[in-house]
């Protein structure tokens, strides 16, 4: 089959999803066993936003109600377990990409009926909404939904159910982006 422009080139097969799920579960179990905490992503993005704000305007950041919370104890806001872990996530993604020959030239993946620009605009809007939501939800799909539910936390199950339900309910309105 010929690759269409919006599709991934030289796409190789992904691993079996159930095998992937078991591996992910084992990574999460090992994380809990070693550090007692779980995997998360959005906290690291927050830390880098805090760190950036602190570089641009240290006084404004320290007096800010939100940034101030993370700048109190004097150590660098990026010196946090999560930030090291997220560094690993990027490296791990790259490693898998190299191993399965999926690393390619910069490329925009999109649905068949959407232009490249619209896809990118949608991606930024989606990112903004998701970023805002992570702070209210105390974590993202990894930190709250996956890790939270796995550790039997009520909040985790709450986020998981509502997040998927919300995406499912809204999917119809943006179907042009994907199908």
């Amino acid at each position: 089959m010929e690759t269409l422009p919006h599709q991934e080139k030289n796409k190789t097969k992904y691993i079996n999803p159930y095998f992937g799920g078991v591996l992910m579960g084992i990574v999460l179990l090992v994380t809990i066993f070693i550090s007692g905490r779980e995997l998360g992503i959005s906290g690291a993005v927050r830390d880098s936003v805090v760190a950036t704000a602190n570089v641009i305007s240290p006084t404004a950041a320290k007096t800010s109600v939100y940034y101030g919370k993370f700048l109190k104890d004097g150590h660098h806001p990026m010196d946090n377990w999560l930030d090291y872990e997220v560094l690993g996530v990027i490296l791990g993604g790259l490693l898998s990409g190299i191993l399965f020959k999926r690393v390619h030239k910069p490329f925009v993946e999109r649905g068949p009926n959407v232009s490249r620009t619209r896809r990118l605009v949608a991606a930024v809007i989606g990112g903004i909404l998701f970023g805002f939501g992570t702070r209210l939800g105390r974590g993202c799909t990894s930190g709250a939904a996956l890790s939270g539910s796995s550790t039997f936390a009520f909040g985790g199950v709450l986020v998981m159910v509502i997040l998927f339900a919300s995406a499912f309910a809204f999917a119809y309105f943006v179907r042009k982006l994907w199908i």
Binding site: G133, T134, G137, C140, T141, V159, I162, L163, A165, L177
Partner: peptide
């Protein structure tokens, strides 16, 4: 958390990703 999850769900279907 309920509000945040709803916003995240919308963000996920528009953007096609989650942070991780």
């Amino acid at each position: 958390m309920i509000t945040g999850s709803i916003i995240m769900g919308v963000g996920m279907i528009i953007g096609g990703f989650c942070p991780g």
